[in-house]
Design a protein around this nucleic acid. Structure first.
Length: 107
RNA sequence: GGAGUACGCCGGGUCACCGCAGGCAAGCGUUGCCUGAGGAAAGUCCGGGCUUCACGGGGCAAGGUGCAGGAUAACGUCCUGUCGGGGCGACUCGAAGGAAAGUGCCACAGAAACAAACCGCGUCGCUGCGGUCUCGGCCGCAGCGGCGUAAGGGUGAAAUCGUGAGGUAAGAGCUCACGGCGGUCCGCGGAGACGCGGUCGCGGGUAAACCCCACCUGAAGCAAGAUCGCUCGAUGACCGCGUUCGCGCGGCGGCCGGCCCGGCCGAACGAGCAACAUCGCACCGAGCCGUCCGGUAACGGGCGGCCCAGAUGGAUGGUGACCCCCGCGUUCGCGCGGGACAGAAUCCGGCUUACAGGCGCGCUCCGCCU
């Protein structure tokens, strides 16, 4: 059971992009904004990152990393991670390090 | 054994921990079980199923296809053949109808690129000069003009035949012998494309140039579309003349999503909204597997078995270990790096393109052994 709900609506993504606090690493950007109730997380992996196979790999690795975070203990936030070009060339450990750098270490 | 060629297929495996989606059971927000990417899921180039709209007909336009027969739901696909090109061969490649319907084009070179004639060859007439002489003429040369000819001439991808002989003023497929390409007509064979033989003595090439001929094509697409909801608009129906009050004629407007002819209508409700939910849509299909039969084959039929992803910010995974394969290094213990192309979105049949490594089976050529 994941500790967060998926962010789905296009309007929510746009709101987080406008209002959210932004922290950027070499291949990853993290945006955090206040949310309505429970914590919601969205992932954006555009075609700039690579082919469909590479995009799937990056998205699945990000989900696996975020599974280790216990969002339920935190306040209600809407969080969006945006993969940047080159994210597909990183190893799993490197990607996890970028998540910790932009969002913070797991509790 | 080497080289080649055709067809079919695989395209990492096991375990552990942590997760996701769908389904079925319990059960009530927990647990168990099952299933979960490809041969190309890709490019979106064809063909269909399905959906909505349109649908009386004729013609034109536009687009597509183009050897024959067959297969198929259909196709621009596939199979078997034919013809032509390539290869010693197995085999392979080909938008492969029509150039005696018309038009256009044929670069450079060349006289000339399609029907004529620049040089040449021959002949006739006139003029001039020379020779001879029986003083009429005859012969030779040159120039001009007419006619005949396409042998010879350099070019070019291509100038309609090649060799030899006859023939002629000179020549010519003009005639003959042998040979050669396309076509006409006839005969034979074949279901047909076409093949073989004879005949005529007719032909520049180019149609992925226009074009002609034959055949095919209603439009848009699953963000199609259906259901549920809300809001808004139109809300009494064009004009004139005639009328036996049914309607008729003319105009205007709309429709028959290209245009014309021709036809129909003048009130059928129409438009917008923003997401979401359910359906479409995911167990029953041009379905998959096995087997037998028919067929050269594509394929068809019978019998038995199976149910096989279904998301919608988009599941099908992440990490680690071991094994397998490849490369490099190696002190032969192992160490390091890597694992092709690529990720379903309405579903099928094809085509095209990408692809590390590997497997099976048939055939051909060469070499060696027996």
């Amino acid at each position: 059971m994941r500790g967060y709900v998926a962010l789905r609506r296009r309007a929510d993504f746009a709101r987080v992009a406008r209002q959210g606090r932004r922290r950027t690493a070499k291949h990853l950007t993290c945006l955090v904004a206040a949310g309505p109730e429970s914590t919601r997380v969205g992932l954006t992996v555009s075609a700039q990152v690579g082919s469909a196979v590479v995009r799937n790999l990056v998205r699945r690795r990000l989900r696996a990393i975020l599974d280790t975070y216990a969002f339920a203990t935190r306040l209600a936030h809407d969080i969006v991670f945006i993969a940047r070009p080159g994210a597909g060339e990183m190893s799993f450990a490197e990607l996890r390090a970028e998540v910790e750098r932009t969002f913070g270490p797991p509790p």
